[in-house]
Amino acid sequence: MLNGPDQQAWSPSSRELERRNARRQISRKQITIAGISSVLVLGALYTLIITSPGWQVVKDTFFDLDYGREVLPTVLRGLVVNIQLSFIGGFFIAVIALSLALIRTTKSAALTPFRFLATAYVDIFRGAPLLLIILLVGFGVPALRVAGLTSNVIVLGTVAVVLTYSAYVAEVIRSGIMSIHPSQRAAARSLGLTSGQTMRFVVLPQAIKRVIPPLLNDFVSLLKDTGLVSILGVTDAVRAAQINASRTFNYTPYVVSAILFLLITIPLTRYIDRVIRRSSAKQNSEGAI
């Protein structure tokens, strides 16, 4: 703490006062410019949409407030299915992805065939469109007519999503494992830890911490991609909206469904952004490690 007569007696010099005044003027000018430009652009967009020849029809078929209120409970019930699917699927994805990542990063001779299989698995499911996988699993598995195999569309849809997302998440975890500096491994091994113990107690805890932000991003994608299982006839939010829309030829349910998804995903992504900012600030303070 600085104190003493100088510190207390200080008042800004006239030059500093002038500078402050100038800065205030600059910022006032910038606020005015931002305001005018916003009003102009948004106003132009608004006018363009409102005065377009089809606006009245679009307004009636997509933004029918009363109808929207009517279908809200049905769509909301559908959304619960999406959320359940995301959490149950998320659990299996975590388990499978972690196993895949560990198998792909191990050097153990006994696991060689599994390493090939895991690589092939990741290549296939990361490279093929999710919608195709859902269709193939959803219609292909029941067609096998194997006794005991389910033909429940919710289960099959979840399986398809889990298959695909496990491949994505496995690669994220693997990149985390690879990002841990070899010196950490050297230190652990020189303390006598086996390669398995080194992975479990030293590498993996650091790797997972590092990939939490991208994993949360994948969770948001998962949540909205569960909407794709509607193609199998699962009554999720998308399907519920579709049923109502095709009954009345009014597309407001789609908009309701989209808004409901956004109400979950936007806050979630904002939260993730904060997590990323915090973790990158922390890593910077840690320096080279």
């Binding site: 950490q184 050297a186 230190a187 652990a188 830890l193």
Partner: peptide
């Protein structure tokens, strides 16, 4: 390696573990 100790130029402490956990990891697990 259980019979050898090694100290590195760049310390190589485990950043996710406390000082005490760094020291006790090998005695407990190994």
């Amino acid at each position: 390696r259980r019979r050898l100790g090694m100290v590195f130029q760049s310390f190589n402490l485990f950043p996710h573990k406390t000082v005490l956990e760094n020291i006790t990891l090998s005695p407990i697990k190994v």
